[in-house]
Design a protein around this nucleic acid. Structure first.
Lengths: 339, 339
DNA sequence: GGGGAGTGGGAAATCGCTTCCCAAATCTCT
DNA sequence: AGAGATTTGGGAAGCGATTTCCCACTCCCC
């Protein structure tokens, strides 16, 4: 049904139309524990339908003191990693009748603090932080804001290793990377170079450590760990630089994430080398692109959509079991690392 | 500064702390045309800082009658096409001090109608619809909801060909596809198959028509138009089926979007054929993946980020020039269509 | 038939913020 | 110096909901 020409129908309009009080209309239309007689209920519903009534969420939020909102903070929504994650968050939110608001940090810690503060104004039920540094020197301001957010009654969820009052949905980066390292060493690789993000970023550090552990334990050795960023271009640049030096055939380059690894693959090709037999490449995450490129990218599958879905639940379910089994990771060997 | 332990600081708290009236505090903290003496202003600002005050956006929205929100409706946020678009929207929103809420249609017209209706509850300033059918039989309910939305005072922006009261930021799909067709015919291709989305979806139809026009005008001929969906898997399935029949070497397959084309490329390979010299493939949009796969995907570059940015402005600027020059498209020939 | 329990509608307070309107104070200009 | 025009702070009325009381009924049982 369509709303009347001028402005939107309010609950008041509906009540008047139905000939009942505001209280009754509210009870019928927007959940309440109290019962309303069927005759009244029906009248209200008819009136609402006729007027095309939709509750004003802002008003509802002010009255209730909390908004049916979950805020999602990501580094870059065009990055497939965050896209898939957001997808899971959105699905969960939809099921729970929540609205998702999204904010982009552009990987700038300052901006991140500012955003959390601004987000506080929405009085959301929960705040999901993906790809943030919740620890280290950059995070000093953040911790304070997150605490303020909690005190206000919102739930903070960190995707990755948590800290403080925040709940966290973690991925066993270390274990997954170790498994990957072991698998690749088993395939015969002996020399590896790691292209990681800067030190202090837990996700990156854990993957580096895990990989090193697994790879060396199985007989390989990590020749170098190169620090850059989390983007394709960072991977490309790092690998290009690397390849200017002497990188023997049969070397494996492990990119800290698939996005980075894809940059590495391009750099390898542009340097006139060959991905696979010549220089092997592996990543982490298993984004869609990695499946479509040739050779396919060897990686560790992270169920990102599920991860987002879980994060949403961690942010909204009052009873939430932190001890829930971690998401299962899986090493996927493709053509980029031939035996 | 950090909020006090219990609940968030309200404007009332700030006013009391500063020893001024609510009205004055409001005028100082949240934009107003009225001037406030510096001595008062300073006192209020200090108090706000001390209490860690952040305006309650919901309350602000109820009082003002409209929320500082822009709603974005996309088919699938994990799809890089929408990811990039969303990126532009988010950038513009950030600049304008607006919050972006996101909803996923899953390409289900019914769901779409439901979402628009629910979104109405937020009383957003604008609604950006990407990848919707605003026309045709599926859109009957939608049109009504959009109208209701407009009547409520919100601006509707359609990415793609608009309709009704909606503003639209369009892409010259037809022209771009025609240029692509011409270019490829110029490269020597004579036989083409088009893998498109179902009929009635304007974006798809325009691209099909444009391509056909350009390709035939330059001497080629379109052998068949296959209708499926807008996803990678749809492209894969369609191409697989196609390749079971007799597809001569040298045939060009044009996927209606890069995502579809990438599915096609995989299908070609899995059918034991070769992308490029054997079966050529072209797409549309120029998503990042198309640049990283080998051979590179020939396509038409659509500045998606800009498109999103423009959509945001169309949704929020009161004065908006519909006649703004359309975004420039560019044919990009890569290895998937060797001469 | 009377009284206590249960049911369910409605009046009104409230949520946090904006803004209209009034009145006091300060300017301005002749 | 005095009258009218400006400023600018504050009181109070909204905005569109929710929710707490209060109270009129009906029912049931002794």
């Amino acid at each position: 049904m369509i709303a009347p020409a001028r402005g939107a129908a309010t609950l008041h309009d509906v009540a008047r139309e139905a000939g009942v009080s505001l209280a009754t209309a509210s009870r019928v239309l927007n959940g309440s524990t109290r019962k309303v007689a069927d005759s009244y209920r029906e009248r209200v519903e008819t009136a609402a339908e006729k007027l095309g009534y939709t509750a004003n969420l802002s008003a509802q939020a002010t009255a209730r003191g909390t908004a049916a909102i979950v805020a999602l903070l990501v580094a870059d929504i065009a990055d497939p990693y965050f896209g898939q994650l957001a997808s899971g968050v959105a699905r969960g939110a939809d099921e729970a009748g929540l609205v998702v608001t999204i904010a982009i940090t552009e990987r700038d810690p300052q901006r991140e603090v500012k955003l959390v503060r601004a987000l506080r104004g929405q009085r959301p039920r929960g705040l999901i932080l993906a790809a943030s540094r919740v620890e280290g020197p950059d995070a000093v301001g953040l911790q304070g804001e997150l605490e303020a957010f909690s005190n206000m009654g919102g739930r903070v969820v960190v995707v990755g290793p948590g800290g403080g009052t925040a709940r966290s949905v973690a991925v066993d980066n270390r274990g997954g990377a170790a498994a990957l390292g072991a698998e690749l060493a088993g395939l015969g690789y002996r020399e590896a170079i790691v292209v990681a993000a800067s030190e202090g970023i837990r996700t990156s550090d854990d993957r580096v450590d895990g990989f090193t552990e697994g790879f060396t334990a199985a007989g390989g050795s990590v020749r170098e760990v190169r620090r850059t960023g989390f983007t394709r271009d960072a991977g490309y640049a790092a690998a290009s630089e690397l390849l200017e030096g002497d990188v023997p055939a049969g070397t494996l380059i492990f990119g800290i994430s698939d996005v980075v690894a894809i940059g590495i693959m391009s750099a390898v090709r542009d340097a006139g080398r060959q991905v696979g037999a010549d220089i092997a490449v592996a990543g982490f995450d298993d984004i869609a692109t990695g499946r479509d490129i040739r050779p396919g990218l060897t990686t560790v599958r992270v169920p990102l959509e599920d991860l987002g879905y879980r994060a949403l639940h961690a942010a909204t379910d009052p009873e939430w079991d932190a001890a829930e089994p971690e998401l299962a990771l899986e090493v996927i060997v493709r053509g980029s690392t031939p035996p």
